[in-house]
């Protein structure tokens, strides 16, 4: 790793002020992504601000309206083991448990998780191949290179990478908010607006700016929370990023779907909501597989697979059906 300096933040407001005034400062929480990027020469902060001692950011607490506020510094393992999370939002617990490893989940924070950068192997390559995310303007090696693990939705010629977080996909299906502290106070960003599509500026993953700190993720109380499920499909059974993944959250009346929310991982630069399928599935019978398949297919008409990942569209449709059935069985 390149040499850098380090200090410990003791107050969120002062941490934000420091971040605002120093372009070369990076927060560090668990360090499990940032240190990997630094070792691979894909991040070069001159100063690390250790935010782990900031008070009040590690809890999982009920909100007045019956939802949950998950602190940005809460560790993945603690959130996944939390009884409220498991009972009321199993999709979150599963999204966390299907990610990384036991050791990494003990270290990694919720804020760091949704901020983690793509696993595109060109982006992480220490030999520094063309990559617009790593070096803006240098080109995209994946566009006409090896793109089996890349996007089928929402990509641009500048970048075809996917976002690797699992729990962000679960949070997208629950329409969670990311609570951010800035110099003017707190603001809530719907998770759907938090991550960006690559467009012409793939070097920016999120809408977060200088002088902002994630303090929490908030999930509102919702019937769909309990009947929710995270399904992850990967090349090996454990300790691997998703090929595709699905978060499904439903509300039913008997066997009929009253409300459905679906988000996918491994298919785009951000958690990808299947809004067309959600609408088409409303009122469908969970036992009418043909109707479910037809409704799900409506979200794949605009899929744009790359040379090596056409399989992701088929795999996704099947994974969505399975996730929907499992979530439905929990209703």
């Amino acid at each position: 790793m390149h040499p850098f300096s380090i200090s410990v933040a003791d107050d969120p407001g002062r941490a934000v002020a420091a971040h605002a005034q120093d372009d070369h400062l990076s927060y560090i929480a668990g360090g499990t992504d940032l240190l990997g990027l630094m070792k691979d020469g894909a991040a070069f902060p001159a100063h690390l601000l250790d935010i782990n001692d900031l008070p009040g950011l590690a809890g999982v607490d009920a909100t007045p309206d019956g939802g949950l506020r998950i602190g940005a510094l809460a560790r993945m393992s603690d959130v996944a083991a939390n009884a409220e999370v498991r009972e009321r939002f199993p999709v979150i617990a599963e999204g966390l448990l299907f990610a990384a490893s036991g050791q990494l989940r003990n270290m990694a924070s919720m804020g760091g998780n949704i901020m983690q950068r793509t696993r595109c192997s060109y982006f992480r390559d220490g030999d520094d191949p063309a990559c617009n995310k790593r070096r803006p303007g240098s080109g995209c090696s994946a566009l006409d290179g090896l793109n089996r693990n890349h996007a089928i939705f929402g990509w641009s010629d500048a970048c075809v990478a996917t976002h690797p977080s699992d729990v962000a996909v679960a949070l997208a299906a629950l329409e969670a908010d990311v609570v951010v502290l800035g110099r003017a106070g707190e603001r809530s960003i719907p998770i759907a607006d938090f991550h960006r599509l690559p467009g012409g500026t793939p070097e920016r993953d999120t809408v977060l700016g200088r002088g902002e700190l994630i303090v929490a993720v908030e999930v509102r109380a919702q019937a769909e929370g309990r009947a929710s499920h995270y399904l992850k499909v990967r090349d090996r059974q454990s300790y691997e990023f998703a090929l595709v993944s699905v978060a499904a959250a439903v509300e039913t009346e008997g066997r009929r779907l009253r409300s459905v929310r679906l988000a996918m991982g491994g298919v785009a630069h951000k958690p990808w909501r299947l809004t067309a399928a959600e609408t088409a599935l409303r009122g469908a019978d969970l036992d009418d597989i043909g109707a479910l398949e037809a409704a799900i297919a409506t979200s794949f008409t605009d899929a744009r697979p790359l040379a090596h990942n056409a399989f992701k569209a088929d795999l996704s449709r099947r994974a969505v059906l399975r996730a929907l059935q499992t979530a439905g069985a929990r209703a």
Partner: peptide
């Protein structure tokens, strides 16, 4: 001065 301890910043 913000939160950065300027004695620590860039002290490698």
């Amino acid at each position: 001065g913000g939160a950065v301890d300027h004695a620590a910043a860039r002290d490698i």
